[in-house]
Design a protein around this nucleic acid. Structure first.
Lengths: 144, 144
DNA sequence: CCCGGTTGTGTTACTGTGTTGCATGTCTGG
DNA sequence: CCAGACATGCAACACAGTAACACAACCGGG
């Protein structure tokens, strides 16, 4: 299974007929390997272990991945963007942000069925459901 | 009705038994007068018309208002915080962010009834429903 | 093989939002 | 009036993200 993420990264990029550069492969691989959305800084740190990538390049690669539909961008509650390659097009898709450690998780089992009555003149694009609370790593004392 | 916002600002602060300073009154008044959440910069601009307030002081005043429950803080999609004093404790409360002009609106008629099944270990605090689309000011060509 | 255009990367410097630390003002209660 | 607490202003900072520009790597055609 360790090869899977590498291979998937390769394949996904090749699939587009675009250049699979070192930076893109490694970035996508990092995102695929992560079990939760990562911030730019976190990605940078993970990549730095074997030959760092420039900050700006990483921004560009991430935008590129998002534009190509290989990743998606999530706004956290700390004004930092996070990126995920795992649940790219899962519908009924919400984000959980831990108020203690600020980590973000993608939740895919959510069916947001809200009663929407927009005032006239508003045209709805997409909706974004974000939940806050504490994650398993940050549970205070008593068990669940 | 013009006196109402001033008076309400005064009263709300006095009600807490806290110091109703110039900065606080004017800031709260500005928020009450606004029909939609305002960013720090917007508030600063509005206040600047008659004797500017220091940037930092404004940040502090806003935090103070939030801490006292007189305003609430909204995270926009542009990494900017917005503040509103109007729908402070309206439940079933969502935010609409215009993708064209980046203005944010509070929507109060929303009942987010989503099916929630959090993975074990997660504890839910608050939820935040944010909508994106175009606002009345930014409708492309055709009328509604 | 070279050459020239396109695409990707690195470097530097910048913007804009928000914060911290410290000095100065201002209010309040004895 | 004085002392302490609280509020404000100023300056410097931290951090995420962006723009401009130059260089490097790739790819096609002669």
């Amino acid at each position: 299974m360790t090869k899977s993420t590498q291979a998937r990264a390769e394949a996904a990029i090749a699939n587009l007929g675009e250049r699979a550069t070192e930076a893109r492969r490694r970035t996508l691989e990092t995102l695929l390997k992560a079990e939760r959305p990562l911030s730019h800084t976190e990605i940078e740190a993970k990549l730095a272990t074997r030959g760092a990538l420039d900050r700006v390049t990483l921004y560009r690669v991430l935008d590129w991945l998002v534009a190509r539909g290989l990743a998606h961008k999530i706004e956290g509650h700390d004004r930092v963007w996070r990126f995920s390659a795992t649940a790219v097009d899962a519908l009924g898709h919400a984000h959980f942000c831990c108020t203690a450690c600020n980590k973000v998780y993608c939740l895919t089992g959510i069916k947001p069925a809200f009663a929407l009555s927009l005032p006239p003149g508003f045209r709805l694009g997409e909706t974004d459901l974000s939940l806050r609370g504490t994650c398993p790593d940050c549970q205070p004392t008593c068990a669940t």
